[in-house]
Design a protein around this nucleic acid. Sequence first.
DNA 1: AATGAATGAGTGTTCATTCAT
DNA 2: TATGAATGAACACTCATTCAT
Lengths: 189, 189, 189, 189
Amino acid sequence: MTELTERQKEILEKAIKIIANDGIQNLTIKNLSKAIGVTEAALYRHYDSKHSILLAILDLFEEFSKAGKSGSGLKGIESFLMERYDKFISNPKLAKVMFSEAVFINDKELSERMRLIIHGHRKELELLIDEAKSNNEILTDIDTKSLFRMIIGSMRLLVIQWCFNGYGFDLKKEGSVLWNNLENLIKQR
Amino acid sequence: MTELTERQKEILEKAIKIIANDGIQNLTIKNLSKAIGVTEAALYRHYDSKHSILLAILDLFEEFSKAGKSGSGLKGIESFLMERYDKFISNPKLAKVMFSEAVFINDKELSERMRLIIHGHRKELELLIDEAKSNNEILTDIDTKSLFRMIIGSMRLLVIQWCFNGYGFDLKKEGSVLWNNLENLIKQR
Amino acid sequence: MTELTERQKEILEKAIKIIANDGIQNLTIKNLSKAIGVTEAALYRHYDSKHSILLAILDLFEEFSKAGKSGSGLKGIESFLMERYDKFISNPKLAKVMFSEAVFINDKELSERMRLIIHGHRKELELLIDEAKSNNEILTDIDTKSLFRMIIGSMRLLVIQWCFNGYGFDLKKEGSVLWNNLENLIKQR
Amino acid sequence: MTELTERQKEILEKAIKIIANDGIQNLTIKNLSKAIGVTEAALYRHYDSKHSILLAILDLFEEFSKAGKSGSGLKGIESFLMERYDKFISNPKLAKVMFSEAVFINDKELSERMRLIIHGHRKELELLIDEAKSNNEILTDIDTKSLFRMIIGSMRLLVIQWCFNGYGFDLKKEGSVLWNNLENLIKQR
DNA sequence: AATGAATGAGTGTTCATTCAT
DNA sequence: TATGAATGAACACTCATTCAT
């Protein structure tokens, strides 16, 4: 919420990079300060603990994954997906960290916040799915939960594959193909 | 694949439990030995390093996720999924760890092995998908990659939800519903 | 209460020595482990924190200052004092630490326990003073609080002088002189 | 003895407060600057090190405990005590710090100066005691050292009790009672 | 097969202090 | 006069591992 200083932005960016590349276990104050090129003590001018750095990363998640609310129903689902692909492309490392839910597992406060963010996304998409059903745009005889799992599950797997392949393919294009195929399947014929 | 002693089995079981509940960061020799009820030094009688314990967990993964090869084509896909659900139910903690790919991220050897296991699964399922296409059991105008992402992606998300909900719903039943819905969508009409 | 191991005794002894000679501020795990001749980590086999080492020192205080209950009334007061002088002589460093109440000031738990120990001593001595009054052994027209302050205050100052003079005089002898003088003053004539 | 600026006075006052309340260990530049409401760096405009702040506190001690030289012999002793009680009441926190000799123990220069101040007081009072003896105002068969220990020891204990009780009783009144009682005991009859 | 004691490297964090602005 | 940013050393403590018993 509060404005971040340049140093704070740098700290978060480098921290995300470390987590994405080498795992949470390698996010140490020492590694982080080395990556930035200052001493360990210097970090504490900008964040008063490692924990607060992780909290700030979660703030970034939240900011990052705020929807643009463009469209409703079936169109809205597509926007939801495509917007997310765009965002992931704009910050691939952050995407990788976001999809490693285990990252925050060992801290009650962090994992709870992560849970809330994910929960928010689900509610948002389920709403769009129900809208699309009401509009008779998609099949109504498949339960919303299953549709959600297909849509988000396949997207998640695609993004994970992209991350673990070193971002080596065009996520947006593959994402479009995936969605077109899925859309055709669930569309009301 | 040498036989595991009782103690070794106990060590792996407790290690998996710790990772699943509290994250990799809390898998320390101290925590592990405490969970088992021996001294830290005692662990080294059974495994000669923490690294080799993690390797043994990956062996378990491999063992665990070996397919029973029952059926081909569409029937094979269903068996593949249902078998997996059964296995996850039989060892929920291991399931949780398996789906946290970030767990092994910070060790080249471990993450490479993990990658290979996942790759094996993909090849296996892609084969079944192509079979089903050849048999004209499922739509042929959807690319195999997309089908794979839908099938496995939705399954993964379902299992993750199950894990993070504390195994609080009937995974097999929900998995069946999910598959039936998806099967109906992709079946040749 | 629980038996101390040889190492634990050594740790406490060296810790007391450091506090007595160089102040609480110099009681660091590093200094302490160096004084003992082991690594810092080794200390944690024997006490699980610096805090618990300080608590153990307070246990020692308590043990140390338990009265032998020899005598009542005026005789009891003398015994109380002489026993204490004997104890201080038997462990001069501990005496020095005991008389630096500020040592534990910055820890709620420690300072509270210290307070209780001191309070116990006061009650004990006040009882003896009141007994001596009842027995008509000492003047009854001086309030007990004042008598307590004279007796214990002068003893404390003597011990402090002894400590800060490097234990350079005969505490027992000086203590006897002090007490004889004070006794003559307060005795019923 | 150069004049202190307002800021310097404030720094010393807050430093004394911190030492009195939370112990020397909590007198850090960070805590001190926070208490004053400036940055850590700002302190160094006014004192060039933590050490020199402590030295300045000792200057204050010296200033603080300079006798008014009102009276000689027995009257002088009373004045000595009552003046001190007045001063302690006027600056209770400083009193508390002054009676925690361990505060300066870990610095050769500081502890030596403290020793000298205390030594000065002793000489001063011993002079008065000897005067009172010469005047035949007090008993001459008690050695001066013992008298000193009774007078100063009991006063010290009273002040310490006052400090650790949160200054919760009337020090002057209790001090008068104590002295009257002691005076009656040692007066030539 | 297990223990108690130890270790060297590393953990997150705080210390007093400096320096450019 | 004061600040924000930095530093090197130290802080209490934990890590995986070793070794004699």
